[in-house]
């Protein structure tokens, strides 16, 4: 490597131009940076992915021999009412839970980014629900949402309201799950928080001088600045909502309203011995989520945003 500091200004420019030209001939170093993930995925992840695709054209009870059935699984899915029901349950949940969850996480993050006393304690407490997982969460919620002796309905009874049946009432299953997802809003809070914290001071001050109030500043300064993180949360929120599994696996829900698509796939594969059919479900599922993601890309400036920062 040549020592730039010892060169004259002209030499420097000439050298940089030369380098620039060199760069054009060589493939972008970007490939080298992204290579590790792709290599490891091609070694460890591609085979399972391809196999699950092949599986979707078979009738395979997992514990026996697969038989090739062509497109039959996909054709069956078109008329499978319980599959449609679980798709509908999942989509409805995503439509409600994603925006509410994003708004909640973002609001908490805004508060956590402000100058408020005792924030370090609040931050930890708000993040707490994210650290418990698995069966404990399900059990805790079963107790909170119990229609007769649950926490919420007991509290409502104190102020004279008869609480709903929550998970035991088909109409209240969806709200129950949205409520549960809100409890975990603290996990999403962190991703917003780190980027809100990076919003340059000048931007705020410039806006303040021009008389922008609190909300105006959020919309004019903060949101545009953290846009990439918003997209991250939007897309991950959609994927997460569609892949809802854990608490639904433990809690279920009355009238098939807790039968999320992942639950359906899991049961079909491992309880009903129809791995091929479950694979077909997974690929339909994948296409739906992918289509929604592409729509997000199309109607936002997801790709454009940072192009000026690229080399």
């Amino acid at each position: 490597m040549e020592d730039l500091s010892k060169m004259s200004e002209q030499e420097k420019i000439a050298f940089l131009v030369k380098q620039q030209k060199k760069k054009k001939r060589r493939p972008s170093p970007g490939y080298l940076f992204i290579a590790p993930w792709f290599i490891s995925y091609f070694i460890f992840g591609l085979f399972p992915m391809v196999l699950s695709f092949i599986m979707s054209f078979t009738d395979w009870p997992v514990i026996g021999k697969p038989t090739f059935v062509g497109l039959e699984n996909y054709r069956d899915l078109l008329v499978d009412r319980s599959f449609h029901n679980s798709l509908w349950v999942t989509i409805r949940y995503a439509i409600v839970a994603v925006p509410i969850g994003m708004a909640a996480s973002f609001t908490i993050a805004l508060i956590m980014a402000s100058k408020t006393k005792g924030l370090s304690v609040y931050r930890t407490i708000y993040y707490l629900p994210a650290v418990v997982s698995g069966v404990a969460v399900g059990i805790i919620w079963r107790w909170i949402l119990d229609p007769n002796n649950g926490l919420i309905n007991n509290l409502l009874a104190i102020i004279g309201i008869k609480g709903p049946g929550w998970l035991t009432d088909p109409d209240w299953v969806l709200p129950s799950y949205v409520l549960m997802s809100l409890w975990g809003a603290g996990a999403g809070m962190l991703t917003y928080l780190v980027s809100i914290n990076e919003v340059p001071l000048d931007l705020h001050e410039a806006a303040e001088i021009q008389g922008a109030g609190f909300f105006k500043r959020i919309f004019l300064v903060v949101i545009p600045y953290v846009r990439p993180i918003l997209y991250y949360n939007l897309i991950m929120g959609i994927i997460g909502a569609f892949k809802k599994f854990n608490d639904a696996y433990i809690l279920g829900g009355a009238g098939n309203q807790g039968q999320f698509i992942m639950l359906q796939i899991y049961d079909t594969a491992f309880t009903y011995f129809k791995m091929g059919y479950a694979s077909a479900m997974s690929w339909i599922f994948l296409i739906i989520v992918l289509a929604i993601t592409l729509l997000v890309f199309k109607f936002t400036d997801f790709w454009k945003y940072s192009q000026e920062n690229e080399e």
Binding site: V62, I63, V135, Y266, F270, T271, F273
Partner: peptide
């Protein structure tokens, strides 16, 4: 301890 049949069936496969 949990998901017994999931593991058994996976192992058989």
């Amino acid at each position: 301890p949990q998901d017994y049949y999931t593991k058994i069936q996976t192992m058989i496969a």
